[in-house]
């Protein structure tokens, strides 16, 4: 079964979705990610969907779920790099993803996460990508 890799960068988790998701894969991602947030005590989750061509209502719901679940676990979620066509489609679909923070690209998303996290809680400095298999 395919898996989406989750990278840990300091107190943030970084997920880059590179393939078109089908529902099972998205559900797995949701479960894995939440487990990782809990295990690492991450303060922020960054989901890069710049390579995703299609976000339908199911995917949108998963993104919303991840954001709400992480919030309960005291982590902020930022979705970055949404393609224009995807954004237009989501709005037309009636799914403006109100609970999800967004940013243009990974860099801006990181900055947004940094600014959202109260100072003092981000105790680790950002290290190189260390890949953690789940």
């Amino acid at each position: 079964m395919d898996k989406i890799p989750i990278l840990k960068m300091g107190s943030f988790l970084l997920v880059t979705i590179q393939v078109d998701l089908y529902d099972r894969l998205a559900l797995n991602l949701e479960a894995d990610l939440i487990r990782m947030v809990d295990k690492t005590g991450a303060k922020g989750v960054l989901i890069d969907i710049s390579a995703v061509n299609i976000v339908d209502s199911f995917m949108g719901r998963i993104l919303g779920n991840i954001a709400s679940m992480s919030r309960i676990l005291d982590a902020q979620t930022v979705v970055v790099g949404m393609q224009p066509a995807v954004a237009i489609t989501l709005v037309e679909l009636g799914l403006p993803l109100n609970g999800v923070r967004t940013a243009l690209n990974v860099e801006k998303g990181m900055a947004l996460l940094q600014s959202m996290i109260p100072p003092g809680s981000g105790d680790e400095e950002i290290t190189e990508d260390d890949h953690i298999s789940v």
């Binding site: 979705v79 993803l97 967004t102």
Partner: peptide, 12 residues
Amino acid sequence: IKTVSATRLMGA
């Protein structure tokens, strides 16, 4: 409103 929402989804 749609345009605004779509812009927001892009992160702007």
